[in-house]
């Protein structure tokens, strides 16, 4: 459990530092290395990767859209189409980032087990 929390924190922290300067998929190598170096079960590695980026992306997106009164998010959620539901758009955003990060962390863990 301790390693899970450490793992989430490491991925979340490093990604938030690196993402402003690098393409979004920098989350994959970050999660991979966290998975590789932090010892835990494969499932836990995936979970840590998933939740770290899910939390990071959803909370940052929430901060941005909140200051905008959901003006743009509402339009995009209509366009994509999600019936204009901003919460749905946030959820999808989190899941997309979470999946990539989770899979990368899992790959890192599996690489460490070789």
């Amino acid at each position: 459990m301790k390693n899970f929390v450490v793992s989430v924190f490491v991925i979340l922290f490093l990604s938030s530092v690196l993402q402003p300067f690098l393409p979004w998929y920098i989350i994959a190598p970050v999660a991979f290395f966290a998975g590789y170096f932090i010892k835990q079960s494969a499932l836990a590695a995936f979970g840590a990767g998933f939740w770290a980026i899910f939390l990071l992306w959803v909370s940052y997106a929430f901060v941005l859209t909140h200051a905008n009164n959901d003006l743009l998010a509402h339009k995009v959620a209509t366009l994509l189409p999600m019936g204009g539901h901003v919460s749905m758009l946030l959820l999808v955003t989190g899941i997309i980032g979470g999946l990539v990060s989770g899979l990368a962390a899992l790959s890192g863990r599996l690489a460490a087990a070789l």
């Binding site: 402003p20 941005l64 859209t65 003006l71 743009l72 990539v100």
Partner: peptide, 29 residues
Amino acid sequence: LNSQLGVAPPFAKFLNPYQGFWQNAENTK
């Protein structure tokens, strides 16, 4: 998630809050 499929935007590129559309949500306050 980084490429355009048909008319849909590249999803992760478009939805991630650091480079995606969320950045265009202008702070109105």
